[in-house]
């Protein structure tokens, strides 16, 4: 039975090694776990958080989850091309143009309630995804412009239609310089004289 002894020895050694290495691996897996953001969080952090539902999901996070599960990345109009590009970058897929079916990119807006017309029905509060509207029943309501994401969701429910989406104004404080235009990249149709004149 010596063959059995030697085989069983070998099996014992191998089995022991398997156990030891398994233990080491298991320990390493716990000890050195990569603390990466789950992909959904990363996607969610790119989405603009307007929470407007234009993508067809009830908010940005559900859309992030959907993207993580393979949905298209071009359904978020508030984010526009910039967001699509970032997502494409993150997920290593092609940056496709915005799906116009879900709406088109628009300038930034905030909601504004014409307070003298508001009847205080609180419908808008219920609609606002980020609690950016203040007011109580039968009191006039008002929008905290800083918190408003411009999602448009409060406009529809208002029975007296007293909510306007007003384009965000640029003030001297929020204004930024534009990239130089024609000066930097001349094309064939440019004439130096014209550029000088226009400048």
């Amino acid at each position: 039975m010596s063959w059995f002894a030697s085989v069983s020895d070998a099996m014992l050694v191998l089995g022991g090694m398997a156990l030891v290495f398994g233990a080491i691996l298991g320990f390493a897996a716990i000890r050195f776990k990569v603390e990466g953001d789950p992909i959904v969080d990363q996607i969610d952090s790119i989405l603009p958080q307007t929470q407007c539902g234009q993508c067809g999901y009830p908010g940005c996070r559900p859309y992030a989850e959907a993207i993580a599960n393979g949905d298209a990345i071009n359904k978020c109009p508030p984010g526009g091309q910039a967001t699509i590009n970032q997502l494409a970058n993150l997920l290593d897929v092609e940056a496709v143009p915005l799906d116009e079916e879900h709406g088109s990119e628009d300038i930034k807006k905030v909601a504004f309630i014409r307070e003298d017309e508001c009847i205080g029905c609180t419908k808008c509060i219920q609609a606002c995804p980020v609690d950016a509207i203040l007011g109580a029943a039968k009191q006039m309501h008002t929008v905290i412009a800083d918190e408003c994401t411009g999602c448009d969701l409060c406009v529809e429910p208002c029975p007296v239609d007293c909510i306007d989406m007003i384009p965000v104004e640029t003030t001297p404080r929020s204004w930024v310089w534009e990239k130089p235009g024609a000066h930097s990249q001349l094309i064939a149709t440019d004439k130096i004289g014209e550029i000088r004149g226009a400048a």
């Binding site: 958080q49 307007t50 908010g59 996070r61 980020v130 950016a132 918190e147 994401t149 930024v176």
Partner: peptide, 20 residues
């Protein structure tokens, strides 16, 4: 700078959304 502010704002929006 704008992007930074946007980021702050969207973080806040996310928080508020989640809170809601």
């Amino acid at each position: 700078r704008e992007a930074e502010q946007e980021k702050l704002k969207s973080d806040r929006a996310r928080e508020r959304f989640e809170f809601r």
